[in-house]
């Protein structure tokens, strides 16, 4: 069977999802403050990196990279409820795009698998 990333549609799927996802995150009062960067261009590139990873696409991130990327946020209070909110927004984004429920669950599981690294535990 082809990879999750290929089934979702590869880079094209990431491109289709990234702005939808970023809008949902910015509109979500629980987590918006973590993403409220002056420089939206650099923020959206990071979102693209996030989605590529969550879709099972090519990336070279290690657990240590995920710890480093989120260390600053953990210091600002990032916790399990925020990871839940991000995954929830990811689910809504994929459903808006008509992604079948099996794949939505796979993506959520993949994102969830790095929870401990993201939270620096």
């Amino acid at each position: 069977m082809s990879s999750l990333y290929d089934r979702l549609g590869g880079e094209g799927a990431v491109n289709a999802a990234v702005e939808l996802f970023y809008r949902k995150v910015l509109a979500d009062g629980r987590i918006a403050h973590f993403f409220d960067d002056v420089d939206m261009e650099s923020q959206i590139a990071k979102q693209k990196a996030f989605l590529t990873m969550a879709f099972g696409g090519p990336n070279a991130y290690t657990g240590a990279d995920m710890r480093n990327a989120h260390k600053r946020l953990v210091e600002k209070g990032l916790n399990d409820s925020h990871v839940d909110a991000v995954i929830e927004n990811l689910n809504y984004t994929l459903r808006d795009l008509g992604v079948p429920e099996t794949e939505v669950k796979e993506v959520a599981a993949l994102a969830n698998s790095v929870r401990d690294d993201v939270l620096n535990r």
């Binding site: 590139a45 693209k48 070279a60």
Partner: peptide, 9 residues
């Protein structure tokens, strides 16, 4: 950062 052309770092 990502070494995969995504993050623009």
């Amino acid at each position: 950062s990502c070494r995969a052309g995504n993050c623009h770092s």
